[in-house]
């Protein structure tokens, strides 16, 4: 009996792994990219240099890949650029900056380098929310919610629309 059970289980492993793509819930990173893009629609920058709006990621390839699907959109009538920045000295050239898990250790340095430059900072790292990053994305009950730090945005001369604040889970 044990031998037969063992054979049975081995046969199970041998079965091809099957998967059915279903379109109900949408993939996390595609959704996060859509949120990041939408945040830029509700943000007013003092100026948009050369009429471009640059969204930057530092380490995260996953999000950059998803953001590129928005390249044909024109937020505020500007050309949308998606960049991955490896040299931190260039982060001031971004209008929006997405901070991922890999950037955790660098946060104090990043915030110091930004020196209240008008760069909208966004993160999905729970530990970074409330530490000077302007918008924090969280997952709650299979849905994405976000928190906004208006103080940090104000210091950087960014104007966040009241609609954005009204949709936020919490505002401080």
């Amino acid at each position: 009996m044990m031998r037969r059970l063992a054979c049975f289980i081995v046969a199970l492993i041998g079965l091809p792994f099957t998967s059915i793509g279903f379109a109900g819930p949408l993939p996390e990173y595609a959704m996060k990219a859509a949120f990041v893009y939408n945040f830029t629609l509700f943000t007013q920058w003092p100026t948009l240099p050369n009429n471009t709006l640059r969204i930057c990621t530092l380490e995260s390839d996953t999000l950059k890949h998803e953001l590129e699907k928005f390249k044909d959109n024109q937020p505020h009538g500007a050309t949308l650029l998606i960049s991955r920045i490896s040299n931190l000295d260039k982060i001031k050239e971004c209008q929006a900056l997405y901070l991922s898990e890999e950037d955790k250790k660098r946060l104090p340095v990043i915030l110091a380098l930004l020196e209240n430059a008008p760069v909208l900072t966004i993160t999905d790292v729970p530990e970074l929310i409330g530490k000077g990053v302007m918008i924090g994305i969280k997952t709650e009950s299979k849905r994405i919610v976000f928190e906004v730090d208006t103080q940090a945005a104000k210091k950087s001369n960014l104007y966040l629309s009241s609609k954005l604040l009204s949709l936020a889970k919490s505002v401080y």
Binding site: A23, G24, L26, P27, E28, A34, N38, T62, K142, R143
Partner: peptide, 21 residues
């Protein structure tokens, strides 16, 4: 849903379920 994410509004996004990677 057949939500087109590039055109979705923030309200639509907030209502959408996600599958966690």
């Amino acid at each position: 849903s057949n939500l087109d994410l590039t055109q979705a509004s923030l309200e639509q996004l907030l209502a959408q379920e996600i599958s966690t990677a």
